[in-house]
């Protein structure tokens, strides 16, 4: 009985990974939005739509994070 229960039990690693990933993404996009890394998407001489591309990347990162969360 105990052995069966042990087999069912999985260490709670996924949830921590989900939270850690959230922190990493938050910091990464925080830097992209608030520090000189803004130059990655602030292109006065270039395309007007680059802020939306950056935003699209954020949405994609969020979708990946959400999948991590559902797995955990």
């Amino acid at each position: 009985m105990v052995i069966e229960a042990s087999a069912r039990y999985t260490p709670p690693m996924k949830s921590d990974r989900y939270k850690d990933s959230g922190i990493v993404l938050l910091l990464a996009f925080g830097m992209v939005l608030l520090t000189p890394l803004k130059s990655l998407w602030v292109t006065p001489q270039g395309a007007w739509w680059s802020p939306f591309v950056m935003w699209g990347v954020l949405v994609a990162a969020g979708a990946w994070l959400a999948r991590e969360g559902r797995r955990g």
């Binding site: 939270k19 959230g22 938050l26 802020p51 990162a61 969020g62 994070l65």
Partner: peptide, 20 residues
């Protein structure tokens, strides 16, 4: 200009903080 986006991009950033 694109400063208007901050009102929505801030929310998108906040969504990345959902886990924490």
């Amino acid at each position: 200009g694109f400063g208007f986006l901050a009102i929505s991009v801030g929310v998108a950033l906040s969504c990345l903080a959902i886990p924490v």
